[in-house]
Amino acid sequence: MKSESFTQSSSAIRDPLILDVLNQMNARRKRPDAAAFAGPGAPDPEMFADYGFSIHPEQGDLIYLLCRAMKATRVVDFATSVGMSALYFAAAMRDNGGGEVIGAELVAAKAATAQRNLAAAGLDSYVDIRIGDARETLKDTGGPVDFVLIDGWPLAEGPTLARQVIEIMAPQLRVGGYVLNDNAEPDFLEYIRNPANGFISVTLPIKRGTELAVKVA
């Protein structure tokens, strides 16, 4: 974790260096042909190492704004992919005076790309990317978490990764902490909207529906 004071008048999210990296990443966005997902079973994530499937800028701005408002210092980024969401988180950590972004990424090549992007933006010291299955790497994040992004990979059967990861992260999230979900998986929504699990959520009109939840109990 990096901790230090900053006196700059402008925020990191408006830093020309960081904006240049984000602009380059957005310019490189691409999606595979739909046929790549048409085979039986779940697609192999290693086959998509060159594809970011990153959050949209509006989601990134929301992450930054919420983290700044709540003075977040420990956040979880699942899945980190090529580092788009981690950049927004890390920018908030820098402007909050210090903090740690705990990333989770299964594909080592994507984690390496994320590290390069973060280094280019001067934000790599705020991010710890844990390579491997998030259901293992996020079992212990080292303390109470302020914010969790959940943007997982499709599975062939059973509970989605989003559902499995929220069940792992919910006990580690502090009361008042946020969860942002990118793909609106039905079983994730079932969990987060069940009052017994201690959350209140709302669907935002961003990227075909982005679910934002706050832990209230």
Rank of each mutant, 00 (worst) to 15 (best):
K2W: 13
Q8W: 07
R14I: 09
L17E: 11
I18L: 15
V21A: 06
M25D: 04
K30C: 09
K30D: 09
R31W: 14
R31L: 15
P32W: 12
A34W: 09
F37W: 13
F37V: 00
D44P: 02
E46S: 15
D50Q: 14
Y51H: 14
I55S: 13
H56C: 10
H56R: 15
E58F: 12
Q59S: 14
I63V: 11
I63Q: 10
L65G: 07
L65N: 12
L66I: 15
C67A: 11
R68W: 01
V76G: 02
V82C: 10
V82N: 08
V82P: 00
L87R: 02
F89P: 12
A91C: 09
D95V: 11
G98W: 02
G99W: 04
G99V: 07
G99F: 07
E100Q: 15
V101E: 00
G103P: 00
E105D: 07
K110M: 14
L118H: 05
A120F: 03
D124Q: 14
D124E: 12
S125H: 07
S125R: 14
V127P: 09
D128G: 08
T141L: 02
P144I: 14
I150N: 02
A156R: 05
A156P: 02
A156I: 06
A162G: 11
V165G: 01
V165T: 13
E167I: 11
L173P: 01
R174T: 11
L180G: 10
L180P: 12
D182H: 15
A184G: 05
P186V: 10
Y191M: 08
I192W: 03
A196Q: 14
N197P: 00
F199D: 07
T203S: 12
L204M: 13
L204Q: 03
P205H: 08
L212A: 09
V214W: 08
K215I: 08
